[in-house]
């Protein structure tokens, strides 16, 4: 017959169970310790996790259907190749670069005198949540690199999300496509200028995340919105550094099902699948 455990040992299992129950129901403001330990654990997983995450994101990116604008570019490139018109393809490339340049100039102009007050380090995605409800990416930069809660992350001119919790070595990035996100945006042509973004009559709306990587919003029927316009951030809850950044592209404009005479429903999709990004740029304010 096995010996009966001593009195304190018998209490160990129920005590640990009770501890787990208490920890499971602790309010969020008292659960900071778990984020601290999770930071260390994610960092420990990074030597194997980072290459795998990069590999996974890259492989997935190969099989993702290209966005419509890229598809058009591919078609143009094929036509140019068939006609052996190398010059034309080069002109396309120049036009694309001009477009990007103009977008970046707009952002620079938007930042105004603050433009030089930000550092823009790149951060790599090293882990994704192990639970299906965890809509957070873990980045390989933390507070030791100057990352603080609330700063924004971008991918070129596209807005990606913001840091929801910065630990010492890693940071949690909440994507703009996370459930429950609401964003105030202005709708502009693709080559929108700062004046168009800030004009009083510019069409504005509030985007809601409806499903994975997609937003919808209701706008009055009087507003002239065309497919392929860009939705740009104009939200006071976000840092000034990302105002005017591209949230997504309008993919459809249709009458609202409930009240088609007054409202129309627009659908906006980010230009890249945010969940599969392997690298983002952080906009960290410079310390004086």
């Amino acid at each position: 017959m096995p010996p009966t455990p001593s009195f304190p040992r018998r209490l160990l299992t129920p005590a640990l169970l009770l501890l787990a129950v208490i920890l499971a129901f602790l309010p969020a403001r008292m659960s900071g310790y778990a984020s601290f330990i999770g930071d260390k654990l994610t960092f420990a997983l990074a030597p194997l996790g980072h290459p795998l995450s990069y590999l996974g994101g890259s492989i997935r990116g190969q099989f993702e259907p290209p966005p419509p604008d890229a598809r058009a570019l591919i078609a143009q490139w094929e036509n140019a190749q068939e006609a052996a018109a190398l010059i034309r393809s080069l002109q396309e490339e120049v036009a694309q670069l001009r477009l990007e340049n103009r977008l970046l100039r707009n952002i620079h102009e938007q930042l105004g005198p603050d433009a030089g007050t930000y550092r823009l380090p790149n951060a790599h995605v090293i882990a994704r949540g192990a639970d299906p409800a965890a809509a957070i990416l873990r980045l390989n930069r933390g507070s030791k690199d100057g990352v603080i809660d609330g700063i924004a992350a971008t991918d070129g001119a596209n807005l990606v999300g913001r840091i929801s919790r910065a630990e010492r070595m890693t940071a949690a990035l909440k994507l703009i496509s996370a459930p429950g996100t609401r964003l105030d945006v202005v709708l502009t042509p693709q080559l929108g200028t700062v004046e168009q973004m800030t004009a009083a009559d510019a069409p504005r709306c509030q985007l809601d995340v409806t499903k994975d990587n997609q937003f919808t919003a209701m706008v009055p029927v009087e507003q002239n919105i065309v497919v392929d316009s860009f939705a740009r951030l104009v939200d006071r809850d976000w840092p000034p550094s990302v105002q005017g950044m591209i949230v997504g592209r309008v993919t459809s404009v249709e009458p609202a099902p409930d009240d088609p005479l007054t409202w129309k429903r627009i659908t906006v999709e980010p230009r890249v699948t945010l969940r599969y990004l392997t690298k983002v740029t952080l906009m960290i304010p410079r310390q004086e």
Partner: peptide
């Protein structure tokens, strides 16, 4: 420890043991 949940739009994210 490796699952981080998003709370409200402006609240910090939540990592939870239990």
């Amino acid at each position: 420890l490796t699952s981080t949940y998003a709370l409200g739009p402006t609240e910090p994210s939540l990592t939870l043991v239990g």
